[in-house]
Amino acid sequence: MHMNSRMFSVAGSPRFDVYGNDFGWGKPKKVDVVSIDKSGAFSLAESKKEKGGVEIGIVLEPPVMEAFASLFVKGI
C-alpha cells in the first residue's frame, strides 16, 4: 500500500433487500446505517424508489458535508 493511499470501508449492500423486509410492523419507509457515523464507512442499499438504483449514505463534518453537497449538486 502506498503512503498516500486511503482505505475506505462499506456498510451494507444493494443486494440485501432492506426495503423488502417486514419484521411484523410493516416494511421500512427509510433505511439508514447508523454505524457509519463512527466508523467512517459509507453505506449502500438498493433504492426504494427506482428499480436497479442505489442509495449511498455518507457522514461528514458539517462544513465538509456542505462542500460535498455543493459539488454533488453541480455534478462534479
Rank of each mutant, 00 (worst) to 15 (best):
S35Y: 03
N4F: 13
S35D: 14
A45E: 03
K49N: 11
V10M: 12
L71Q: 08
I76S: 05
P14Y: 01
A11G: 01
G57H: 00
W25M: 12
A45C: 06
F68I: 02
A41W: 02
P28T: 08
F8M: 11
A45F: 00
V33L: 02
H2Q: 12
V18I: 13
S39W: 02
P62M: 02
L60K: 07
S47Y: 09
V73P: 01
M3G: 14
M1T: 12
V54A: 03
I76G: 10
M3N: 13
K29I: 11
G75L: 08
P63Y: 07
S9T: 13
G40R: 06
G75H: 04
V34M: 01
F8V: 10
S5R: 09
V59R: 02
S39C: 01
F72G: 00
K49G: 03
D32R: 06
S39I: 02
K30Y: 08
G24A: 05
M3K: 15
E50Q: 13
A45R: 09
D17M: 11
E61K: 15
K48C: 09
K74S: 13
D22T: 13
G52L: 10
I76W: 09
H2R: 14
E46I: 09
P63D: 08
K51G: 14
S35N: 09
L44A: 05
S39D: 07
K29P: 01
F16E: 02
R15P: 00
V34S: 00
E61D: 15
N4L: 10
E66M: 05
R6P: 06
V59G: 00
H2A: 13
F68G: 04
P62L: 04
V33E: 00
S9N: 07
M65R: 10
V73M: 10
E61N: 13
S5G: 15
R6T: 15
H2F: 11
F68E: 02
K29D: 13
S13M: 03
E55C: 04
P28N: 06
L60H: 04
F42C: 01
W25P: 00
G52N: 11
R6N: 15
S13L: 05
A41M: 03
G40M: 05
K74H: 10
D22L: 11
S9E: 06
M7D: 07
D17S: 14
A67Y: 02
R15T: 09
V54G: 03
K27A: 14
V18D: 03
G24R: 07
Y19Q: 10
F23A: 14
G20M: 12
V54W: 04
G52F: 11
K74T: 06
P14K: 03
P63R: 07
E55Y: 03
G24T: 07
V31R: 01
